[in-house]
Design a protein around this nucleic acid. Sequence first.
DNA 1: CTTCTCATCGTACCGTCGTAATATGACACG
DNA 2: CGTGTCATATTACGACGGTACGATGAGAAG
Lengths: 199, 199
Amino acid sequence: MTAKAEQKERSHETILESAARLLREKGIAGARVADVMKGAGLTVGGFYAHFDSKDALIDEALRRTSGEMRQRLFARLEDKPEGDRAEVVLKRYLSAAHRDDFARGCPLPAVVGEVGTTAREHGDVLGAQVNAMSSELEAYLPTNGGVSPRYLALGLVALMYGGLSLARALRGSPLSDDVLKACRALGSAAARDGAKPVT
Amino acid sequence: MTAKAEQKERSHETILESAARLLREKGIAGARVADVMKGAGLTVGGFYAHFDSKDALIDEALRRTSGEMRQRLFARLEDKPEGDRAEVVLKRYLSAAHRDDFARGCPLPAVVGEVGTTAREHGDVLGAQVNAMSSELEAYLPTNGGVSPRYLALGLVALMYGGLSLARALRGSPLSDDVLKACRALGSAAARDGAKPVT
DNA sequence: CTTCTCATCGTACCGTCGTAATATGACACG
DNA sequence: CGTGTCATATTACGACGGTACGATGAGAAG
């Protein structure tokens, strides 16, 4: 009896991984059930034995991809000088490599727009992910700036997400690289001095 | 003979206005041809007498809405002290009112994600709009900062777009207001001191 | 060996979307 | 007053999407 259960669990995991990839590459509407199953080496028919609905799959995939991304983003920071850590995160997120690695990168660029317009039902899950990302970043920010670390972190998350999204949408144009560079510069300055208001 | 031509021109304009509204409210895929025509008080049948395809309509609507938005965003700045103008733009863009006014606000939050994933064909038009917005903002930025006005402007555009997109996706949650506030603070500091690198 | 279970498959239903072909009806012109 | 033109309406087609249901076949249980 255990062999069947194991197989089902493996399939569940494979489906989720396929969904995670497609969600990041093609967004919510673009991650079609049939394609997700094909990516998992299965066919449509079996899908509803694993998930209640496409929406449930998207929610789970969103949590999964967001968690993965945070892990990669904040990995191996102990090696870096304490004051540089936020900048390292910024540079990792706003890199050309991250822009070009849809399949394993941040899911936000692929889902935020849809959540704001036609997929409001995923707003809660999205909010939790944004919150988690911001909270984790907050720990690496200075406390003596003009803005509290919490707000600084939220602003940096918006800057990172905005820069990466634009860079992905404009990839192929030189403007894409410029956007990344500009966001790194703006973000680094803010991460160091805490966005001190000027006179 | 002129009466027909006038009517057709009026219809073209009405269709475009309807598309502009729907594009901002529901995104590219969400702005369906039948709905656009209904919003214009017409029916699907006549659509292809006015536009070659849905894609052509979207491109035109994107240019239109983006231009409208810039006009509103940079209007009446002569009243303001010269050094405050960039900040005024920031505050207008990152306001709760703008977040809640889908129908007349910035189209970027509704289209950037799709262009990055499933609607690459609109990338050129989108790039031109981002460029226009950044260029216009650039004129109001300090030249003595750590970053050139061009890069500062690009970074601020990414911050504004990112903040507004997140705020729209999270509307209803208190996090939405926090994101706007955080982006205003971060942006204002950068717009004033030009993102000076610290020590 | 037989029977039951269950993960997965093949397939079909129903709605929706972009697009196109034809119909209609109002206006301009002779 | 009749005729042709053209903007718009009606309707249909083909593709595709999420979802559901019966078939299949491999493994577990006796």
